[in-house]
Amino acid sequence: RGFLEKAAVKKMAKAIMADPNKADEVYKKWADKGYTLTQMSNFLKSKTAGKYDRVYNGYVIHLD
């Protein structure tokens, strides 16, 4: 289950990176699912340092 969630989160993160207008909708879905910042950090780990920082930081702001 965790692997599928991670894959889904990364897919949506890539969608945000391609079209930032989708961010609020995606952040709301993640918040509704109760994803914590720790979970998001783990889901968005990448071999490329900083690749998903913008998405993660946007989610931090959304939760605030």
Rank of each mutant, 00 (worst) to 15 (best):
V9Y: 02
M17H: 03
A15Q: 14
Y59G: 00
S46T: 08
L4T: 10
T38F: 12
A23N: 02
P20H: 09
A15L: 11
H62Q: 03
G50H: 09
M17D: 03
G58K: 03
T38S: 12
K29P: 00
S46K: 05
E25H: 08
H62N: 01
A8P: 03
L44D: 02
A49E: 13
K11Q: 10
Y56L: 13
K6Q: 13
M12R: 04
G2H: 15
K10V: 14
G34D: 03
A18C: 14
D64Q: 13
M17V: 07
L4Y: 14
T38L: 11
A8Q: 12
Y35L: 09
Q39M: 11
K11F: 08
A8S: 11
E5H: 10
K28G: 06
K22M: 14
L63K: 03
T48I: 13
W30V: 01
L63Y: 04
I16D: 00
A49R: 09
D64E: 14
G50Y: 05
A18W: 04
T36P: 01
A7T: 10
G50Q: 05
Y52R: 00
S41D: 08
K14T: 07
T48G: 08
V60I: 08
A15Y: 07
I61E: 12
E25P: 05
G34C: 08
L4N: 08
V55I: 10
V26G: 03
A31T: 09
L63N: 02
Y27F: 08
A23R: 05
K11Y: 07
H62I: 03
G58S: 03
T36V: 03
A13D: 00
M12C: 15
K33Q: 11
Y52D: 02
K51H: 06
K29D: 07
H62A: 05
Y35A: 02
L37M: 06
D19Q: 07
K29R: 13
E5Y: 06
S46Y: 11
K6W: 09
D32Q: 15
A8E: 15
T48P: 14
R54H: 11
E5M: 07
L44I: 03
K45T: 13
G50A: 05
A31M: 09
M12A: 12
Q39S: 04
V26A: 08
K6S: 09
M40A: 03
Y35K: 01
V60N: 05
A31F: 10
M40G: 00
G50F: 08
Y27R: 00
L44M: 02
F43Y: 08
Y35H: 03
L37D: 05
L37R: 08
S41W: 14
M40I: 13
E5Q: 08
T48W: 08
A7G: 07
T38E: 12
F43R: 02
N42V: 12
N57H: 10
K10P: 00
I16M: 05
G34W: 03
G50N: 08
Y35Q: 00
Y35E: 00
G58Y: 02
F3W: 15
F3Q: 15
F43K: 01
E5C: 12
A8M: 13
R54G: 13
Y59R: 00
K47I: 06
V26T: 09
D53E: 09
N57R: 12
K14I: 07
A49Y: 10
A7N: 11
A15F: 06
R1D: 15
K6M: 12
R1I: 15
K28M: 07
V55E: 01
V60C: 13
A18S: 13
Y56T: 03
I61W: 10
S46N: 05
Y59S: 00
V26E: 03
K14L: 10
G2W: 15
A49I: 12
L37G: 04
R1N: 15
F43A: 06
K10R: 14
A15K: 11
D24M: 09
H62G: 02
V9W: 02
L63T: 04
A8D: 08
A31K: 11
I16P: 00
F43D: 02
Y27K: 00
D24R: 09
S41T: 13
A23Q: 06
M12L: 12
S41A: 14
D19I: 03
G50D: 07
N21Y: 12
F3N: 14
V60M: 10
M17Y: 04
A31H: 10
K45M: 10
K47Y: 07
N21S: 14
S41M: 10
A31I: 04
M40V: 14
T36K: 04
V9L: 04
S41N: 09
D19V: 04
M40F: 01
I61Y: 09
G34A: 05
Y52S: 02
M40Q: 02
G34M: 04
Y27G: 00
K11E: 06
S41V: 12
Y59V: 01
T38P: 09
V9H: 01
D64K: 15
H62F: 14
K45P: 03
R1W: 07
K28E: 07
D24I: 10
V60Y: 06
E25F: 10
A13L: 04
Q39L: 06
L37P: 11
A18K: 13
M40D: 00
R1T: 15
K45D: 06
V26F: 06
S46P: 05
F3L: 06
D19Y: 07
S41I: 07
Y27V: 01
M12N: 06
G34N: 05
P20E: 06
A31G: 04
G34Q: 05
A13S: 03
N57C: 14
D53L: 08
K14R: 12
I61R: 14
G58E: 04
H62M: 06
K22L: 13
G34R: 06
D24T: 12
Y35F: 07
K14F: 05
Y35N: 00
D32L: 10
Y59W: 03
K29F: 09
Y52Q: 01
H62T: 03
E5P: 05
T36F: 02
V55A: 06
G34P: 08
V9I: 12
H62C: 05
V60L: 09
K22N: 06
L44Y: 01
G50R: 07
T36E: 03
K22S: 07
K22T: 08
W30A: 00
N42E: 14
D53A: 08
I61K: 13
M40E: 00
K10D: 03
P20S: 08
Y59F: 06
K11M: 10
A23F: 02
F43G: 02
N42T: 11
A13Q: 00
L37W: 02
M12K: 04
F3T: 12
G58R: 02
A8R: 14
Y35W: 05
Y52W: 07
T48K: 10
M17E: 04
K29V: 10
M12Y: 06
K47R: 10
A31W: 08
Y35V: 04
V26M: 08
M40T: 02
I16W: 02
A23I: 03
L4D: 06
K28F: 04
N57L: 12
R54D: 14
K45R: 11
G34S: 04
D53Y: 06
K6H: 10
